[in-house]
Design a protein around this nucleic acid. Structure first.
Length: 895
RNA sequence: GGGCGGAUAGCUCAGAUGGGAGAGCACCGGCCUUACAAGCCGGGGGUCACAGGUUCAAUCCCUGUUCCGCCUACCA
């Protein structure tokens, strides 16, 4: 109990340093983050969007994990057996790039090391610096069950990956073939469609003459040609046709004839195909099947040859004759020069285009023909689409449903093979003697076809997203039938950023439904992207990055978390700046100081929770408890619907502007006194503080845990205390209107003081003219509060307006008028001015209302209660006007 | 080219089913009032993007326009 006795010595400002690590360690030591396999409790489960092992915590992670932690802590406190599975993603290309860069400093490439050695280096790197982000998540306060941390390439998950691959293959949903794919010449691998980014940029389009074949000589005609337009002249070296639209009259006679491909002098046909848009360019298109997605399709339809002109570095192949060995951009120059020389370059225009770039290294990708593995998407997408349409999985905010549907209905097969080394190696082997393909979860001893014992494993690895697609069930032990799967699958909620809706969410839906026959999660909450104060994407090159670790160091983790939650409005960008975090740091300090005040007086009040008899409470106490009650409800509702910002702002408003600004001010005198009244005030102050701390805990785990241990009579942790519930006994309606009126009166007097420039310390006399019973009782019951908060030394009360003091400033309200005699206190002319100003406003409002009420249509068609409301409003305004008149006359009398 | 969203106070945004324009921050003025100056009290400020329409009544519903985001796409 010793630190409780000391709690009136809380320091003046909250110092988060030391506090944060202290509590985190204790939570860990007491294993408070760990889920149980208890079947009797309701379960709540989430899987973390696994950050890349290469990652360092950026502000997006901070937001994502703060929101998850808020839910986890809320549910845990609310009695759920809560499991939040953490882990990291091996991030194939990204990680490989990191290690490649590292060995490059030793002057080595991965080819120098060889596959085995290189992968060994990656594992070494992972062991050394791969866990950094996990430590950073802990700094953020994340209450993940670290005893269940997973890695997408650990043994269990690798087993799940192989199992899924084999099953899909056996079901005919995985196939291999020569197709055109996006190739990154820097990463030396294929990329899936969505791994390619498109940015609009200014480029050029060239018009090139392809000479027709002279039918007499069989050679290139000197004066007849067909003109094609292209943004990529170098690809002409791989052209195998020229295509025109079948309905294009201009070219009708040319279809079936041949042109001579310039530079290489290859004879290629003119064909007709629906795909060609006669409106664009010249209406004639060069067809490069191996390096353009459309052309590939055309080639399939017309059985055209496909010539690969780029190698893995995007250098020209031997197919290009004299151009062999050139880089693609050099080749473009050279080709254009040569065409120019031959007089075949007709013109050049500016043309905007969206070149695809690799999402990992930003290199311009090259569509290229190669042998790859694919997942047949359609059979998987159907159920995933239905699950969302039928609401089995609900996407929040719902605006994203349409985007999801759009994508799910238009996707092409998923290219899953990557020509890199770091990742899950595809479990397929080819027999060295008969060429038979074996797909199996375990390395085959011998060829099932010919019995030979020499087989070679596929060198490709799987797309990183293939393993993350299994995350919700692979982390729970699939393919084994585990208790974890039984209890925690489907998971309750997935919280992630909308930019990986397709990469990840959609694929988890497909895989989850296919292998578990159930959706992977009931809710998907997609949060916004964090941007800088101007709404720009944060990037190192722009220098506008807000680093969560730096600001946590500067303002404390609680302030950062609370800020992120308060700005997490649904479906918007979050524009973040340090100022905003600083603002919420003030809130943390406010909480600290309110607790300091309460504990200064009440640290020895034991058993405050059981001591509140509703009948014994005064109206101020009833009011704050009723307000607390409605705060509890609002926060719960908001969290249940993922309105993190509403929950945070509700707590902020209640704690600061109701509890601190009014309740604690009202109670100060009681708190510092002795006696029954004081004990009760202390109990109420503690109860509200205690309850609010528990409501705040999911948002600000550290400061709330620290303060909780200063509260009298507390054992254990706030982290595992109960989340507050609404108490029906505390809905004191009358007390609320009573105290609202009291606040109005006090504000009214303060307003007079400020308007007339009366010093805040100057004691005033106030004369009240109540118009209602409520007003009367407020005046008599709350003399102490009025005197203290409005700095009034003498209070008077009159029954009739004719008794009002001469020469007084006035506050006019429906239920009460307050007069402050100004003799010797203030300038009468000032007061007259103020009245004049208000009169203008009232007259303006009155005019509006009267216009409405003299409109026959309004009277006839508007509902009766609305008309009545307008009439009441007119009466109120008239009454106010006449009161203003009265005050003005009175002031003139004495001036 | 398609799709989605946005335009309300200086800034960031809130404004269920149409019926008196709000918050936070910033700003201005006054206060060291014994928890907090990281604080307290008070205040000013908006043709609700523009133009039409529906209605007794529009920030809200409808149509169009302009501007700004984002997603998506095979116009070479």
């Amino acid at each position: 109990m010793s630190d409780k006795a000391d709690s009136n010595l809380l320091p003046k400002a909250y110092d988060f340093k030391g506090v944060e690590t202290k509590w985190y360690e204790q939570w860990m030591d007491n294993r408070l983050f760990e889920a149980t396999l208890d079947e009797d409790k309701p379960c709540f489960s989430m899987v973390i969007p696994p950050p890349n092992v290469t990652g360092v915590l950026h502000i997006g992670h901070a937001l994502n994990n703060t929101l998850q932690d808020i839910l986890a802590r809320y549910k845990r406190m609310d009695g759920y057996n809560t499991l939040w599975v953490p882990g990291t993603d091996h991030a194939g290309i990204a990680t490989q790039n990191v290690v490649e860069r590292q060995i490059a400093q030793e002057g080595l490439t991965r080819y120098d090391l060889g596959r085995e050695k290189f992968i060994e280096r990656v594992w070494q790197w992972k062991a050394k610096s791969g866990g950094r982000i996990i430590e950073q998540l802990k700094r953020l306060g994340c209450s993940c069950d670290w005893s269940r941390e997973r890695f997408t390439m650990d043994e269990g998950l690798s087993k799940a990956v192989r199992e899924v691959f084999v099953r899909l293959y056996e079901e005919g949903l995985i196939y291999r073939g020569d197709y055109i794919i996006n190739w990154c010449p820097r990463c030396h691998t294929a990329l899936a469609d969505i791994e390619v980014e498109h940015d609009l940029s200014e480029g050029r389009i060239w018009y090139i003459r392809y000479p027709l074949v002279d039918e007499a000589t069989g050679k290139a005609s000197r004066d007849s040609y067909i003109v094609v337009a292209t943004t990529r002249p170098e690809t002409m070296l791989g052209d195998t046709a020229v295509a025109v639209n079948p309905d294009d009259e201009r070219y009708k006679d040319l279809v079936g004839k041949y042109v001579v491909l310039p530079l290489l002098n290859r004879k290629i046909p003119i064909i007709s195909d629906e795909h060609v848009d006669p409106e664009f360019g010249t209406g004639a298109v060069k067809v490069t099947p191996a390096h353009d997605f459309n052309d590939f399709e055309i080639a399939v339809r017309h059985k055209l040859p496909r010539i690969n002109i780029f190698d893995k570095d995007a250098k020209l192949t031997e197919e290009t004759g004299p151009y062999e060995g050139l880089d693609r951009f050099e080749a473009r120059k050279k080709v254009l020069e040569d065409l120019e020389k031959e007089g075949l370059l007709e013109k050049e225009e500016v043309h905007s285009l969206a070149a695809g770039t690799c999402y990992r290294c930003k290199t311009v990708v090259e569509p290229r023909l190669s042998k790859q593995w694919f997942v047949k998407i359609e059979p998987l997408a159907g159920p995933a689409l239905d699950a969302v349409r039928q609401g089995e999985t609900r996407i929040v905010p719902p605006g994203w449903v349409r985007t999801y549907e759009e994508w799910m209905t238009n996707i092409r097969d998923w290219c899953i093979s990557r020509q890199i080394w770091w990742g899950h190696r595809i479990p397929a082997w080819t027999c060295d003697s008969c060429g038979h393909l074996v797909v199996a979860t375990k390395t085959p001893e011998k060829c099932p076809n010919c019995g030979a014992d020499s087989l070679t494993q596929e060198t490709d690895v799987l797309d990183t997203w293939f393993s993350s697609a299994l995350w919700p069930f692979s982390t729970l032990g699939w393919p084994e039938k585990t208790k974890e799967l039984e209890l925690f699958y489907p998971t309750s909620v997935l919280i992630t950023s909308f930019d990986i809706l397709f990469f990840w969410v959609a694929r988890m839906m497909m895989m989850g439904l296919h292998f578990m026959k159930e959706v992977p999660f009931y809710f998907v909450y997609l949060h916004a992207l964090v941007r800088d104060a101007k709404g720009q994407k944060m990037s190192k090159s722009k220098g506008n990055v807000i680093d969560p670790l730096t600001i946590m160091e500067k303002f404390g983790t609680d302030a950062v978390r609370f800020t992120l939650a308060a700005f997490a409005a649904q479906g918007r960008d979050i524009k973040l700046s340090e100022d905003r975090i600083e603002g919420y740091r003030h809130f943390v300090n406010k909480i600290w100081n309110a607790a300091r005040l309460v504990l200064m007086h009440a640290s020895s009040v034991e058993d405050y929770e059981n001591g509140l008899d509703p009948n014994s409470l005064n109206s101020v106490e009833k009011w704050i408890l009723a307000r607390l009650n409605s705060t509890v409800k609002k926060v719960r509702d908001a969290l249940d619907s993922f309105d993190f910002d509403v929950a945070a702002k509700t707590l902020y408003g209640f704690f600061w502007h109701e509890y601190c600004d009014w309740y604690l001010e009202f109670s100060k005198s009681d708190l510092s006194r002795g006696g029954d009244r004081s004990i009760r005030a202390k109990k109420v102050a503690l109860t509200v503080l205690d309850t609010t701390l528990r409501l705040l805990h999911p948002f600000m785990p550290f400061v709330t845990e620290e303060l909780w241990h200063h509260l009298p009579g507390k054992d254990g942790f706030i982290m595992v205390s109960s989340f507050p519930k609404k108490d029906p006994e505390w809905d004191f309606e009358e007390a609320q209107s009573e105290i609202e009126l009291l606040k109005t009166m006090i504000s009214g007097i303060r307003n007079i003081r400020a308007e007339l420039g009366i010093h805040p310390g100057k004691e005033l006399e106030a004369v009240f003219l109540p118009h209602t019973d409520l007003a009367k009782s407020v005046i008599s019951a709350h003399e102490v509060e009025i005197k203290a908060l409005a700095r009034v030394s003498k209070m008077g009360q009159i029954e009739d307006a004719k008794d009002k003091p001469k020469g007084a400033a006035s506050f006019i309200h429906e239920e009460v008028e307050i007069f402050i005699p100004l003799e010797g206190v203030v300038d009468i002319q000032q007061e007259l001015k103020k009245i004049g100003k208000e009169r203008t406003k009232v007259e303006k409002d009155l005019k509006k209302v009267e216009a409405k009420l003299s409109n026959e249509n309004f009277l006839k068609k508007a509902p009766e209660n609305i008309v009545q409301k307008e009439r009441d409003k007119r009466d109120r305004l008239l009454a106010r006007l006449s009161k203003l008149d009265g005050h003005e006359r009175m002031l003139r009398e004495i001036s």
